[in-house]
Write a protein that binds this DNA or RNA. Structure first.
Lengths: 116, 116
DNA sequence: CCAACATTACCACGAGAGTGTCAAGGTTGG
DNA sequence: CCAACCTTGACACTCTCGTGGTAATGTTGG
């Protein structure tokens, strides 16, 4: 038997057992079940859980973000509508691409402090 | 001058002035500014705000979801890593929890297409 | 000049995400 | 048989999201 129980899977992936259940509930990694209902994590699930952890940490994103990406990946309609909205060029306003507004806010704050 | 102030923009788009500032802060719709710092909403921004409202309502998604999509659209690295994770085959697609907001049955064929 | 607008900076508050812990009960292996 | 595991469900806490206010202050137009 190569499938791990939730406790073993938790230890080898770095997630807590609680989070493994939460991740399953959000539709991201759903392990098989034994006849009695026990979760059985195979090599594929374990790998997926490790790379998920890596992904979230590297980009500072959340499970809900990945869940949304999954939803876009499975619904062409959603994906196309979102892509369509993003493609609407904001004629005038340059940039502000989600990573920049932080710096924007910070600069403003510094300016206010300097003026005081 | 055809640009509207935040109050006028709020009335014609259905958002509140408060939300227009919030939307700007999340990097989705950033209007131009007057020399005194007043937000100036032009036709492009107004249209964008209306379609944004439509988009959120139609799919029951949030501003943060669209903001994340925007982040993926501007970062090839993020986009590829997320897509790569989603492409890792989930050994058995089953057990998606009772209160599931996805309509898997409807999207099944699209998932097959995306995997091709 | 001044009423009506704008700006930012706060306080607040319900809802959801992300976690832990505990309870009550079923399953497993030695 | 029984200790150690598993299950679901619930209480709770911290953060962020999505909103609404209010206050203090600057700007605009008639």
């Amino acid at each position: 038997m190569e499938a791990l129980t939730i406790r073993e899977a938790a230890q080898t992936t770095g997630w807590s057992a609680r989070m493994l259940r939460y991740i399953e509930r959000s539709g991201l990694v759903a392990p098989a079940r034994s006849s009695a209902g026990y979760r059985l994590y195979g090599p594929a699930e374990l790998q997926r859980l490790r790379t998920l952890k890596e992904l979230l940490g590297r980009y500072e994103i959340g499970l809900s973000d990945v869940a949304f990406a999954a939803r876009m990946a499975t619904s062409a309609e959603l994906r196309d509508d979102v892509a369509g909205w993003l493609a609407e060029k904001p004629s005038r306003p340059e940039h502000v691409s989600a990573q920049d507004w932080l710096r924007f806010e910070q600069d403003k704050h510094e300016k206010l402090l300097a003026a005081a």
